[in-house]
Design a protein around this nucleic acid. Structure first.
Lengths: 236, 236
DNA sequence: GCGTTACAAATTGTTTACAATCTACAAATT
DNA sequence: AATTTGTAGATTGTAAACAATTTGTAACGC
């Protein structure tokens, strides 16, 4: 009589979780979140000891996390001087937008090419939620939904490399926004974004790649120009 | 009488060099080179102690280098198990090619759009060198020149983000080649590559973006199919 | 007063030591 | 004989100690 050895019930995920999450990984994720949500602003210094104490770990894991973040382009390491949240110049932001546009183009064309395989469950709901936030004037949450929309499109391609490349660019642009202290102030641009998203989604669903490509191009360009304009306004 | 304080003559670069090159950085570059030139094959285990001893450093810097390499997608870290050179499946390779194609397209279109700004000094020489290597049957060096050609095109765009994204993909593809032990055996494909490059360069110089785009697309596709075929052959 | 130099505090870079985890092999049990 | 269990060895994860560099400050000379 064999006992049910291979039960391993509900905690399997938790085990996998612990297996891959060492202290350096955890610290890195934590810092990444703080940077991407704007708590840690570009230019800020990340002090080893202070961070280690705050997180309750020693400096080793913190230093390892720094290396990972540096390779991801989120921080800049200056030898014997310290680690700083990466700053991005307006020119760099333009360059990032240029690459992002190429990837977004690939994304929508890929999805439009196989609209059946495109699992868009929840996309309508997401857009509806974004629209509600826009109506209520909840800019931050609407912006979050809009970013989520783009991310889901990328993820739907099933191309891991594409998603990774795309996310890196979006992360860098988030960095730039926080650095410029850009706060979305008017609802009109948010509503326009949601409308753009609806049109893009519709084109993708109908398999009209060329149309989707044109729409996303206009959409990203608008975003780029808006950001550069806001930046110019606050400088001038 | 002020002494010439700010002289700092020839050694400035050397100083900058030392300033940014800590042990972890050096170790990371060293390992990166070993991985990209195929000395360290995908799947190989990177033992901390052995590496630290070999490089004459302690385990700390080695571990920090690992984190950087992991974020660059060159190694895979398994908690409590070890660090391994990343393996790439044929499906992943296909995905990488797909993204690369999008970036190469952007590259040649950008260059063709401003052919005056395109500093192509030495490109002809590079292609001539590649052709000579191909004639002599020096496949390895010819392949190196061909990769150099693509890299210089990317660099010529002046878009740092684009170059970084592009290099990451090319690195991953190198990984895949080494993993599959793909050795270029026939001179014909190399000569075809050089011919492709000449045509692409000519199109870019003439500002014919659409043509250059079509050419690079065919070029990359051919490379992809060649690699997949070689892989299929050696499996079957 | 200005600039230089010397010193002290703080921070980072590196190494060493200790704890926890995993792998392999052998003994024991069924 | 096959499976399990236990133990030894090796490897990784973490923390603490030590060394080197930088920064700020104050004293000193011009």
């Amino acid at each position: 009589m064999t006992r049910q050895i291979s039960a391993v019930p509900e905690s399997e995920i938790s085990i996998r979780h612990l297996q891959s999450h060492s202290l350096p990984t955890l610290v890195q994720q934590q810092l990444e979140n703080l940077i991407l949500d704007g708590t840690l602003v570009p230019g800020n210094k990340l002090a080893e000891i202070a961070l280690a104490d705050r997180l309750g770990v020693s400096r080793g894991p913190v230093r390892e996390a720094f290396r990972g973040l540096a390779a991801k382009g989120l921080v800049r390491v200056e030898k014997n001087r310290g680690v700083y949240v990466r700053t991005i110049t307006p020119e760099e932001a333009d360059e990032i937008y240029e690459v992002r546009l190429a990837l977004e183009n690939l994304i929508v064309r890929k999805l439009a090419a196989s609209p059946v395989a495109f699992d868009d469950s929840g996309m309508d709901g997401l857009l509806a939620t974004a629209a509600r936030f826009a109506e209520k004037g909840d800019f931050a949450n609407c912006h979050r939904c809009n970013m989520e929309f783009h991310d889901r499109l990328a993820a739907a391609t099933g191309n891991r490399t594409l998603v990774d490349s795309y996310r890196r660019l979006v992360n860098e642009l988030s960095l730039f926004r926080h650095q410029a202290h850009v706060k979305v102030r008017d609802a009109s641009s948010l509503k326009a974004s949601v409308a753009d998203h609806r049109a893009i989604l519709a084109a993708v669903r109908k398999g009209e790649g060329a149309l989707a490509s044109r729409l996303i191009q206009r959409h990203i360009e608008a975003s780029r120009k808006r950001l550069q304009k806001l930046l110019g306004d606050q400088e001038g």
